[in-house]
Amino acid sequence: MEGSHNAENIASILDATLSKWDIRSKCEAITTDNAQTMINAAAKLHIRHIPCFAHTLNLTMSTLASDKLRAIQRELNKPELKVIQEVPTRWNSAYHMLQRIVTMKTELTLALNECNRAPPGVNADEYLIIQETIQILEPF
């Protein structure tokens, strides 16, 4: 992206890209990190912004929360897994991130419910979207 990375320019590029692919009217939401410029860009486009769950979780989970997640995993006899964060330079990282969220659904929900400053958990509709997205990304 050339120029300033402000909300106006980001919104303009997103709008042009969505229009070029003829999917502007089909776009229900945009998922990004929690940067205010991305939130503002989505607002300018009148498209719902969904903060990346793994990114939010990564930003807010303290050592105490990580310990709580591991304890819950042990209690449920589940593997001690960590969330996977999407990495722009790894083309398949979004797929792996979403797979991990689904794999750890119960443990994440329980851990989030026990942490005071945790982000809101993923609701049932969002899990359906995640599962559909995994199916779409899987062949790639």
Rank of each mutant, 00 (worst) to 15 (best):
E2T: 06
G3V: 07
H5E: 00
H5K: 00
H5T: 09
N6V: 10
N6H: 12
A7R: 04
A7W: 07
E8A: 11
I10Q: 00
S12W: 07
S12Y: 13
S12F: 11
L14Y: 15
L18G: 01
S19T: 14
K20E: 14
W21L: 14
D22R: 14
D22Q: 15
I23T: 06
R24K: 03
E28Y: 01
I30C: 04
T31Y: 01
T31W: 00
D33F: 13
N34Q: 12
A35D: 15
T37Y: 13
M38G: 00
N40W: 10
A42L: 03
K44H: 10
K44M: 12
L45N: 04
H46E: 13
H46P: 06
I50N: 02
P51R: 15
P51N: 05
P51V: 04
H55E: 08
H55A: 00
T56K: 14
L59Y: 07
L59S: 09
T60N: 13
M61H: 14
M61Y: 15
S62N: 11
T63C: 03
T63F: 04
S66N: 13
S66C: 05
D67P: 01
L69A: 00
R70C: 10
R70V: 06
R70H: 10
A71K: 10
I72S: 13
Q73T: 06
R74N: 06
R74I: 09
E75A: 09
E75T: 01
E75I: 00
E75M: 07
P79Y: 01
L81E: 15
I84V: 15
I84Q: 05
I84R: 11
Q85G: 04
E86M: 12
E86T: 13
E86S: 12
T89Y: 12
R90F: 13
W91A: 00
W91K: 02
N92Y: 12
S93H: 08
A94P: 08
A94F: 15
Y95T: 04
Y95V: 02
Y95L: 07
H96R: 09
M97G: 06
L98D: 03
Q99F: 05
R100W: 08
V102N: 10
T103C: 09
L108T: 13
L108V: 08
T109W: 09
L110W: 06
L110A: 06
L112C: 07
L112V: 14
L112A: 05
R117L: 05
R117E: 12
A118R: 07
P120L: 05
P120T: 08
G121D: 02
G121P: 13
V122D: 01
A124G: 00
A124V: 09
E126I: 08
E126G: 00
Y127F: 08
L128T: 05
L128R: 02
I130Y: 01
T133Y: 03
I134G: 01
